[in-house]
């Protein structure tokens, strides 16, 4: 199970990193969201994986580590605030600059050859 969990975290990270490296704002925001899933899962797992042992006193014989859970809980909410801020910044950027490129301007030199250009 641990291997599968780690594999999923790795896949989420890969997808997030790839999207973060794109040149338009929306894919970057989506990439950041994927990355924050990966980060939250990673941090959460630092308390190790356990089944049927929620950290509620008296509910079950063993308890999982509550501390990473508390940290991740606030991280999820803050992550939402950050995503919201970035996406609104992207909208503002498009409104003020006229495009949605991450650099605020479309580079004159594009790595595409002429026939590939839209």
């Amino acid at each position: 199970m641990e291997a599968l969990y780690a594999f999923c975290v790795g896949i989420l990270t890969t997808c997030g990193v790839f999207l973060v490296l794109r040149s338009r704002t929306f894919p970057v925001v989506v990439g950041l969201t994927l990355l924050s899933y990966a980060v939250n899962l990673f941090l959460f797992s630092s308390g190790r994986l356990a089944i049927n042992s929620a950290a509620v006193i008296g509910a079950n014989p063993t308890y999982s580590d509550p501390l990473p859970q508390a940290l991740v809980l606030t991280a999820i909410v803050i992550g939402f605030a950050m995503t919201a801020f970035v996406v609104i910044l992207a909208m503002r950027g498009r409104g003020d600059l006229g495009n949605d490129h991450v650099d605020g301007r479309i580079p004159e030199y594009s790595s595409l050859s002429d026939k590939e250009k839209p």
């Binding site: 780690a6 975290v9 790795g10 896949i11 797992s45 190790r48």
Partner: peptide
């Protein structure tokens, strides 16, 4: 992206398969 994902996954795997003691 693949290399970084691989690294993070490996670290994650190495971490959660090790016993831990916490202030929990």
């Amino acid at each position: 992206a693949a290399i970084i994902g691989g690294i993070i996954g490996t670290i994650n795997y190495a971490m959660i398969t090790r016993p831990h003691s916490s202030i929990a």
